[in-house]
Write a protein that binds this DNA or RNA. Structure first.
Lengths: 141, 141
DNA sequence: CTCCGTGCAAAAGGTTTGCACTGGT
DNA sequence: ACCAGTGCAAACCTTTTGCACGGAG
């Protein structure tokens, strides 16, 4: 939390009660709350806070690297005709997703004591980085 | 495509032009189109087709196992205060996501020739399966 | 001929935007 | 005091639902 305040100062961002409150909620929770869940938890402590602010603060937190979006696959649902196990290349800048067909990736089995009671039947690996188009765009821009 | 028609017959589903057209688009594309992108591509071939139908057909295709949803993280965006590399346990039934903090998973580096020009800087592994609550619910129900 | 599947329209989330005001710095 | 940050309302985008019609089996 102190690190967060330092980060804000370094970025020249105002330390508002809203930002502090939302960051506190995020820092405490170990699940991956939605914007609305964060709003519900923050609203009693910050009377009059709006959902708009929650969305805007979350954008800011993502931009300065204080939190992550849990999925990099974009907002809208995407569909994949390939039902076999396969992995993905994901561009962190434009959310483009490319299949890695026929590229087996050996992931060691998760030890039973780390599975939190889940029956694990499969896995998928997202390799994250920058796609050729975004790299080029950044180099020229 | 022939396999898809056989699958429909086996499931007792009518082979409508809409289902065939949407499945053809999905089978041809190697990216992960959104419902709207599929609609845009299918609309000229199926005059008068509605977005509603695209959504309903996609649901059907997922149900019979002809396609997959590319993300299992649910509709709403989720936020994660943990910006360090970590992996996830994902329930395929209720979309619950649990962090695997401090559980390193060794994934071999992707050979350069499989990277499709991406600069890969990180990776994340989603372990997929059934969470304890859903397993219990299924056992009792 | 019988329903399943579709189209339309409207509703239901989730998220973003325009504008005026307020609170940090 | 200035301007970034906020609140409100309305718009926007994606997805779902109710109802009536039409075509596949």
């Amino acid at each position: 939390m102190a690190a967060f305040e330092a980060l804000c100062r370094r970025e020249g961002l105002a330390l508002t009660v809203q930002r502090r409150g939302i960051m506190e909620v995020l820092a405490r929770r170990t699940d991956h709350p939605t914007a609305d869940q964060i709003y519900e938890e923050v609203a009693p402590r910050l009377p009059g806070v709006s959902r708009t602010t929650v969305y805007r603060v979350l954008d800011t937190l993502v931009r300065i690297g204080a939190v992550r979006r849990a999925s990099h696959l974009g907002a809208a649902a995407r569909f994949d005709p390939n039902t076999a196990r396969h992995h993905h290349l994901v561009c962190l800048e434009c959310d483009k997703v490319v299949d890695l067909d026929d590229v087996p990736v050996a992931v060691p089995p998760l030890p039973a004591r780390r599975r939190a009671g889940f029956d694990v039947v499969d896995y998928a690996v997202d390799f994250r980085g920058t796609c050729p188009a975004c790299r080029k765009r950044r180099a020229s821009g």
